[in-house]
Computed example of a mutant assay.
Amino acid sequence: MTLFLIVLFAALVFEYINGFHDAANAIATVVSTKVLTPRQAIMMAAFFNLLGALMGTAVAKTIGGGLVDANVATMPTILAALISAIIWGLFTWWLGLPSSSSHALVGGLCGAALATAKGNWGVLHWSEMVDGKHIGIWPKIVMPMLLSPLIGFVGGGLLMLFLYAVLKRATPHFINKWFGKLQIVSASWMGFSHGTNDAQKTMGIIALALFTGTQAGAFDDVPSWLHFLRTPEFEVHRWVMLTCAIVMAAGTAGGGWRIIKTMGHKMVKLQPIHGFAAETTAAAIIGVASHIGIPLSTTHVISTSIMGVGATKRLSAVKWGVVSRIVWAWVLTLPITGLLGYLVCRCLHSAGY
């Protein structure tokens, strides 16, 4: 029971970090275009993150049972995954790099599961068909990781070109006035979509911990008022959803100014119409992914949408030196967190857990 409480605490710390680390996803553009003040933008993003986090559990089920064998996972496995994701999240936040909290958690979980199974790669679900649906690391993680940035870049560019064509006779005053208002809508949608995807990842981890603890008998002697902890089948309880939603909203309210500065100012100079195009593109992609249970990197999608929108101005408008640093952080996230998860789990085992 004590170890579960430690895991629960670590999961909520990760969720909080995810909130302020990825707050930039929803509000960087609306702040950089000066449509909203930083305080207004953060409060708006926190509210819509909270709302989105309560919508559905498809992504949570993918994280909790679709990537590694749930019967192999132990409390130290889950704790090691969370510790590795927290370390990477704080490190990239300190550098001001918008890395993927999703991939950090997935990498940590896979590495920790390998350590628990003593190097048996069979505990990882690579690609399987269950109830007519594809599950596993390849269809749910790797393919979206490769395709979503491309779709974000192309989608953002195409939407921006469409807006240019439709509004070619409009005055700059008209465009800035109306897209300043529309960008509030697109930023709200982006915050909502972020909540539907990112908050669910921690829900899945906590649900996995509850299932693991029940299987191991950790909750057999708990008082009757704690009976809700017992989870004989993998299930995402309502209290888990609500707790994760509140913690993520609190993290978002805490901001994440280093990453906001990178995404909103350093990559490309944006105006309200550009912010609207980038946010609308990213929100639509993330919304579809959440519906079908793909734990997408919201960071990858909004970042590449901003790049695609900026590239329509001219390719040199995008500061590709900054972009290259971001891409390296993306590439390294899975292998580094996988290694961290493996090492932390081995350390926990050596300590007798």
Rank of each mutant, 00 (worst) to 15 (best):
L8Q: 09
L8S: 03
F9A: 15
F9S: 01
A10N: 00
A10R: 05
A11M: 02
A11K: 00
V13W: 00
F14Y: 12
E15G: 05
E15K: 10
Y16Q: 12
Y16P: 03
I17A: 06
I17T: 09
N18H: 08
N18M: 11
N18I: 11
G19K: 12
G19I: 10
F20A: 01
F20V: 09
H21R: 09
D22M: 06
A23T: 15
A24P: 08
N25P: 06
N25A: 07
A26N: 01
A26Y: 03
A28R: 00
A28S: 04
T29F: 13
T33S: 15
K34P: 04
V35A: 00
L36Y: 02
T37E: 08
T37M: 05
P38H: 10
P38Q: 07
P38F: 06
R39Q: 09
R39P: 04
R39S: 08
Q40H: 06
Q40Y: 04
Q40I: 04
Q40N: 03
Q40W: 03
A41T: 02
A41M: 07
I42G: 07
I42F: 12
I42L: 13
I42T: 15
M43V: 11
M43I: 12
M43W: 04
M44T: 02
A45F: 01
A46W: 03
A46M: 07
A46N: 08
F47G: 03
F47C: 11
F48H: 01
N49L: 10
L51H: 08
L51K: 02
G52M: 13
G52Q: 01
L54M: 15
L54K: 13
M55F: 15
M55W: 14
T57S: 14
T57M: 11
T57G: 10
T57K: 10
A58E: 05
A58Y: 06
A58K: 14
V59D: 11
A60S: 14
A60K: 03
K61H: 14
T62L: 10
T62I: 11
G64T: 11
G64Q: 04
G65V: 09
G65N: 12
G65T: 09
G66Y: 10
G66N: 13
G66Q: 13
G66K: 10
L67P: 09
L67R: 07
V68A: 11
D69S: 15
D69A: 14
D69I: 13
D69W: 14
A70Y: 12
A70T: 14
N71D: 15
V72D: 12
V72E: 13
V72W: 11
A73G: 06
T74Y: 04
T74A: 00
T74P: 08
M75D: 10
M75T: 10
M75V: 11
P76V: 03
P76Q: 07
I78T: 07
I78G: 07
I78S: 08
L79E: 02
A81H: 06
A81K: 03
L82H: 02
I83V: 06
I83Y: 06
S84D: 06
S84K: 01
A85Y: 04
A85K: 00
I86F: 07
W88V: 04
G89A: 05
